[in-house]
Simulated scan of single mutants.
Amino acid sequence: MKPEGRPPASPVEASKPGNEDAQYLSTRGLLIVFGGLAVALVLGYFLVNKLVNISQEEDCALARRYNCGAVEVPR
């Protein structure tokens, strides 16, 4: 018999029907985790793109060029 409060020795033991100590993440919890991960990835993508644009503008300015701004094409 194992002592009380001790975690299961293996994942197989945790899945046994008589073990009430095992905790599982609910479906709502999984959705929240994956939603947060998706938001973090999208924000990270936009941040990296902004940093690339800033780096390109700085490289242009350090090369002493005067036409470094964004070029707007008339329609």
Rank of each mutant, 00 (worst) to 15 (best):
M1C: 15
K2W: 13
P3I: 13
P3R: 15
E4W: 15
E4T: 15
E4V: 15
G5M: 06
G5A: 07
P7Q: 01
P7L: 00
P7E: 03
S10K: 01
P11K: 00
P11T: 00
P11E: 03
A14H: 08
A14I: 02
A14W: 04
S15N: 07
K16D: 04
P17F: 11
P17A: 10
G18D: 06
G18N: 07
N19E: 04
N19H: 06
N19F: 01
N19Q: 05
E20S: 13
D21W: 06
D21Y: 06
A22N: 13
A22F: 06
A22K: 09
Q23T: 06
Q23M: 06
Q23S: 07
L25D: 04
L25A: 12
G29I: 08
G29D: 14
G29W: 11
L31M: 15
L31R: 14
L31C: 14
L31F: 10
I32M: 10
V33K: 11
V33E: 12
V33R: 10
F34G: 11
F34D: 09
G35A: 12
G35V: 10
G36R: 01
L37M: 05
L37V: 08
A38Y: 08
A38M: 12
V39Y: 01
V39P: 02
A40W: 04
L41V: 13
V42M: 09
L43P: 03
G44S: 03
G44E: 05
Y45I: 02
Y45G: 04
Y45A: 02
F46M: 10
V48T: 09
V48A: 07
V48Y: 13
V48F: 05
N49V: 00
N49A: 05
N49I: 03
K50W: 05
K50N: 03
L51W: 08
L51T: 03
L51Q: 08
N53Q: 12
S55N: 11
E57W: 00
E57S: 07
D59H: 14
D59R: 15
C60A: 00
C60Y: 02
C60H: 00
A61D: 10
A61W: 05
A63C: 01
A63S: 10
R64Q: 14
Y66P: 10
Y66G: 13
N67F: 07
C68Y: 00
C68A: 00
C68P: 02
C68S: 03
G69P: 08
A70E: 11
A70Y: 05
E72Y: 11
E72G: 06
E72K: 04
E72F: 09
V73P: 04
V73L: 11
V73Q: 08
P74C: 01
P74N: 12
P74Q: 07
R75Y: 11
R75A: 09
